[in-house]
Design a protein around this nucleic acid. Sequence first.
RNA 1: GGCGGCGUAGCUCAGAUGGUUAGAGCGCACGGCUCAUAAUCGUGAGGUCGUCGGUUCGAUCCCGACCGCCGCUACCA
Length: 503
Amino acid sequence: MHAVSRFFITTPIYYVNDVPHLGHAYTMVSADSFARWHRQISDDVFFLTGTDEHGLKIAQAAAENGMSPKEWTDSLAPRFQDAWRKLNISYDDFIRTTEPRHYETVQSFLKSVYENGYIYKDIYRGLYCVSCEAYYQEAELDNGNCPIHGRPVVVMEEENYFFRLSAFTDRLLEWYERHPEAVGPSSKRNEALGFIRQGLQDISITRTSIDWGVPVPWDSQHVFYVWYDALINYLTAIDYGRDLEKFELWWPSVHHIIGKDIIRFHCVWWPAMCMAAGIDPPANIFVHGWLLVGGEKMAKSAGNKVDPLELANEFGLDAVRYYLLRDTNFGSDGDFTYEALTSRYNSDLANNLGNLLQRVTTVVVSKLGGQAPKPTADSPLAVFAGEVMESARTAWSQFAPQDALEAIWSLIHEANARLEVVAPWKLELGSELENVLGDALECLRLVCIGLYPVMPDTSSEIWRRIGMDGSPEDGNALAALSWGQYQSSKVIEKGIPLFPRRK
RNA sequence: GGCGGCGUAGCUCAGAUGGUUAGAGCGCACGGCUCAUAAUCGUGAGGUCGUCGGUUCGAUCCCGACCGCCGCUACCA
């Protein structure tokens, strides 16, 4: 008996003022596919997401809407929960930073950092744009004016608590050196390293000008700046400071999935904060790129935010999930276009996968009365299928869904090609007919297992139509990946096409 | 300015410690099949692997310069 593997995976928590858009969905579907795969291989999985609910902008928006900040965020958080439910995101815990458990964790974590001597009080002086309600660096200014409003900035001073990030420059470099796999892909790792190498400055982590935040336990005049409480959500969910056994079960072997816009917080500040609190930094941070829209960054100002729920209504949820993971390289920027989605839908889903299922079930029903034959151990497809599933398995373990899907589609292609060669629709009843159909059904069984993390509904439906009991996620996928486990005497159902061709 | 990356078929991208005919998918053309959502299967066209030099018996892959594009260069999130 070997110990259960644990797989703790997180997404960023989303700023609750925002509307869930395709960029969020991209992160969520990716993380969901990893969580599902690891559940399939019998890992003990904990998949965490949530909402970030503090900060000035939320307090302002609440006031504008005549609500308290808490009422305001209570009204917004369900938008995210609803969206993720509709996208079939199988998270295990949804954290809101306004929950008591989070206040408790943030306070206990930062109290440790304080007691360890990494937090001190000082005056923050900065160039402040009143309109933005934000500080700017001199280099960011446009002729001394705010780059957004074009108005002069003013020098402001504020008493803040500072985090001694500067003390961690060398320790972070050493950590990166000793854990080359901690941050990936390497391009993003280099980016973080470049930033650290130029030397780190202390950063202010509290505010007195606002009160919508977690109170500083040792100084009630201050609340923690929003990022400082946000990162700690990862610890809140595993009961840091409350349940040592649970905490040690899940930490530090975590996989943080993040977008490239928040590298600095996760790859510099966060590991340093952990060190300062006396716990290990996270084991793995995987940085993915942006999902662009027609080559442009998705932004409110550009008016090009795509609603993933509308897309799912139009194309079907699994088609959208498939497209997001197949048409991008996880780690690089991707580009969303309707044309590319339509093309993937028609060629990969309708023509290849959907049509394979359709032609196989049709022939089994018409020639064999729907009684499924069994696959052959020495099928010409057996070796190839074994290699494909091994590739898919490796790809999943390396956070490369596009590679897993590419491998699976090569099996779909081979299955189609084999049908062309043998042409069962021309054969008389007999072993040759049964063998080729049994092999095709076995291919479909394998496809279901490898595809389940990305297209759970589709995969389950194919599973059902080929007469399998339960669901593709049952049992241990690693054991189920070997050739020849499809059972005969199943009853095949010919259904309507899963992916009617579009356009 | 500094650091880093990229530039390969119409499109999206792989690729090799440098070595016979540079790959895939999509699209396109031709052919086969007709079970299937006119789906599928096979074949093919086509690219001086950004430009110019260098190293080498030999470079798309190494080095240099240049052109073009992009990322990071700290406290909005």
